[in-house]
Design a binder for these strands. Structure first.
Lengths: 192, 192
DNA sequence: CATTACTTTCAAAATATTTTGAACGTTGAG
DNA sequence: CTCAACGTTCAAAATATTTTGAAAGTAATG
């Protein structure tokens, strides 16, 4: 095969591997995804293992994750017994799945924990010594900052995800970065 | 110490550890940061090692990263020979430093690589067989999608970072993402 | 229902990351 | 200059993650 074609393919696959690793996934996920993405035809597990020179076990496990994250889907090849996969080429879909399934959960969990902390402190205020009350007030301030921060992140994610758009980025670009946007006043964050 | 105060402290520290790990850093970084954040007074390396029950070496190394990422700064305690640290309590500053120093670089690198790929393919088009030209066209399409995607990410990051603001989140909010928010829609999703 | 062609699983091995602590620097005080 | 009190470094040890491959599972086919 032409060496430039090959170079493009390889650097793309490697780059996607780097990206998935950066996002906290295994980089094999990215390389599998990239391999599928750069292949016009669907590929079987064996094809993938062969191409990337990794074991079938690893391909199998990572392909499961890939499917879970909506990065590829099975494809039926008539007359074939093997499973074939094809990449979800709409990156917008991919990123939305990841953001909603993972980052969103992370943020929600953080907010829950913080909420519980605040509640505990408030409920117990009566039992504290003067000294402890001071510390409790300090904690509430810090925890409040964190809450604001996470609520902000949650809002950003939600609005990002709320753009229902389909397969092209045109849909996303009604993202208007210059207009005023009126968020709640809750967004102060005392310097501390 | 009152057990609720303690619980709040610990869950916050643990939560921040989880967060830094999620962001691809060592979780000790988050725990150190959290410990500093939840302590009204600056703390020395020994204090931190003692509080988190980890070695001085680890504290030293991780505090270096923490400083690099603008998550804490040194504080001079008069009459003291030790280094004291205090957390940067403005989370906005922290996230900006991380986004601009790390994610931004990641995206730029990706775009560079993609740009080179495209150029190579275009320059060499003449030398390709018909078969290869077809594949090249396919590659260009895929790579083009990736470019759009990363350019979009870059734009989002830039506009996020362009909000020069100080300690409140008001400055960010001229980011208008879209029409309807639906904070109640369901975020729950298959686990990883 | 037996065979065959695949996929999945999982424990052991390989690899990568993190932690430790003791040795080595550095700085300020005397 | 020497000592004492720190901070930093880094190689070895401890942990955690990833990979492998062989065995077990599954489903289509005859």
């Amino acid at each position: 095969m032409n060496e430039n074609l090959n170079a493009v393919n390889e650097s793309t696959v490697a780059g996607l591997g780097r990206l998935t690793r950066f996002f906290g996934f295994n980089d094999v996920m990215g390389r599998l995804y990239g391999t599928l993405l750069m292949n016009p035809e669907p590929m079987s597990l064996d094809d993938l293992a062969e191409t990337l020179q990794i074991s079938k076990g690893s391909v199998s496990m990572n392909m499961r994750s890939i499917e879970r994250w909506g990065m590829a889907r099975e494809v039926w090849m008539k007359g074939e017994r093997k499973k074939y996969y094809t990449a979800e080429s709409d990156l917008w879909t991919v990123i939305r799945t990841v953001l909603s399934g993972r980052e969103m959960r992370e943020v929600s969990t953080a907010l829950e924990v913080l909420g519980q902390s605040v509640e505990k402190l408030r409920l117990d205020e009566a039992e504290l010594t003067e000294e402890e009350k001071k510390l409790a007030a300090y904690y509430l301030e810090r925890v409040g900052d964190l809450q604001s921060f996470f609520e902000f992140a949650q809002m950003l994610l939600s609005s990002f995800l709320a753009a229902e758009e389909g397969p092209d980025f045109g849909g996303v670009t009604n993202l208007n970065l210059d207009k005023d946007f009126d968020l709640d006043s809750e967004w102060e964050n005392g310097t501390g």
